[in-house]
Design a protein around this nucleic acid. Structure first.
Lengths: 135, 135
DNA sequence: TTGCATGCAAAGCATTTGCACACAT
DNA sequence: ATGTGTGCAAATGCTTTGCATGCAA
């Protein structure tokens, strides 16, 4: 991720360094607050404003994806260059986010794009339900 | 919609009356602000707080659905008792919301629910792309 | 050296809440 | 008559912005 930003002529400050490294190591989406807390736990958190700025930057460069679950805060997760991606199920009991992927769903969306005849650049899918612990 | 609320023992004040009637007449989702503006145009808008309260009430009673497009404001649209529903495509050019439905997509989600083995109570799907005018 | 990156504090928005009054039942 | 519904204004919470300073290139 660092390389992409460097290629775009951007500098490598402490905030970018830390947010990118944290996000690259996550299996799933984190909110700005979760990022701040995680970084503060390491002893060196950037200011909240910088975290938001870095996240915006990553989204602009397609290095991260914004995930909205409807709880009033945005979450962010690394986006793989391969285009490989997953979607989320949010547990209505505990709010936990669970990732999944499903080729059938992707196929259905592909067909749908053809049918609509419009250029579709992306899609978000969110399932709501009960996770194992809450069921 | 009025009947459902009456059945739940709720009263019928001016704010509920107006918001429900407006929403029932819409083809697609409206934000709280759009609702307020539309009602103000008729000369009688409830207070903003009441609009939000009515919307929450409708969502709780499954009479309306919350639609999040990622622009920082929630939108609401009537939910049909039949369970019939559509999804949205948001134009990245002009922000316009376009409704569509697709049985193939619904089938794919049905199969996915079975595969995951979890109770899925609902799903949101959002496509991003360019509308006819912006393509 | 020269801007771009960062931090802090203040500002912005959408949404929620507290409280007193009005009105449906 | 009574308690629910409403409006206003203040409070909240996430996110953004202004501005002065620090640091990467």
């Amino acid at each position: 991720m660092h390389e992409v930003l460097a290629g775009a002529g951007l500098k490598r400050g402490g905030a970018r360094e830390r947010v990118i490294d944290l996000l690259a190591a996550q299996p799933c989406a984190l909110s700005a607050t979760e990022i701040e807390d995680a970084l503060r736990a390491t002893g060196r958190s950037p200011g909240r404003a910088s975290i938001y700025r870095v996240l915006d930057l990553l989204v602009e460069h397609d290095l991260a994806e914004r995930v909205e679950v409807g709880d009033g805060q945005a979450r962010f997760e690394r986006q793989h260059p391969s285009g490989e991606h997953h979607h989320h199920l949010v547990c209505e009991g505990c709010g936990r986010l669970i990732a999944f992927d499903d080729p059938g769903l992707e196929r259905a969306i592909g067909k749908l794009s053809d049918r609509l005849g419009m250029r579709i650049s992306g899609h978000d899918i969110l399932l709501r339900g009960a996770c194992e612990r809450c069921a």
